[in-house]
Amino acid sequence: METIVFSLLNGVIYGLLLFMLSSGLTLIFSMMGVLNFAHASFYMLGAYFAYSIMGVTNFWIALILAPVLVGLVGAAVEKWGLRNVHAHGHVAELLFTFGLAYLIDEMVKIVWGRSSVDYRVPEVLDFPLFELFGAEYPAYRVFILMVSVGMLVALWFILNRTRAGLIIRAALTHPHMVGHLGHNVPRIFMLVFGAGCALAGLAGVIGGNYLVTDPAMAVQMGPIVFVVVVVGGLGSLTGAFLAAMLLGLMQTFAVGVDASFADLFGWLGLTATSELGGITIASLAPMIPFLMLVLILMIRPRGLMGDREL
């Protein structure tokens, strides 16, 4: 019971973080067809910017300022980089962002060093909020939960209830028509790219101190973000949300399960001393996202809720 409740809570938080990271990528990918390899690098930038800003001022200013800065960097990348590559096709765009990820990684290493930085949870939020089954639950995780839900509601409101959201949704499926109606589609692309990067930056700000802030965080997170987008389906934020929650919960639960292959398949004669039998479910947790990715692409290429195939 205890494990289940904690896994549920942590899984939801991890899932929400994943969703925040991948919502921007889903928008970018559906609208521009660009699978942004550097998306997780913007997440990393968010964490590092917040760390630096926090050194000068405090966490709350960092919470606002860091995502804005990341968004500006993203918009600049779109305007002066990606847009020029667009003419060479999607593979060139993908490769451009692949190179960009390399570049941001190296720049982060130069500016902030190769080891992890001491980006901490602000003291105001660094206390146990409540006690559950004799274990304390940190307030910061609940703060993450609140920020993520707030972001979710705001994103939903903007996309579904405002004029800007209307245009963005139209540009997701019919960019040419939106252009014919007199909207500046390249500018919309730039804004959406910037906003998507800002969301990734926000995820970095609140996730960087929850997890760890080091130059490897982009490489670790990057492929998982792809999984969320692909499993969720092209053009569907709901799908991305479902996929993120599913992944978050599955990974957290898998880590919590104390069983090995021998326990599961003992009836087939698999012993715990053999190599295959000794593999635990917990050690499989990092593989789950990629298993899902491959299976979804083979069985249901449009993803859970996608409106079209990749």
Binding site: L35, F226, M287, V294, L297
Partner: peptide
């Protein structure tokens, strides 16, 4: 069975899977 971006994604997933399996089967 797929080309383009789906192929790239599958190859990425397979690479991650094989690499993790590499650490698992000593």
């Amino acid at each position: 069975k797929r080309s383009g971006v789906p192929f790239a994604m599958i190859s990425l997933g397979v690479a991650e899977l094989v690499a993790s399996a590499g650490y698992m089967f000593g």
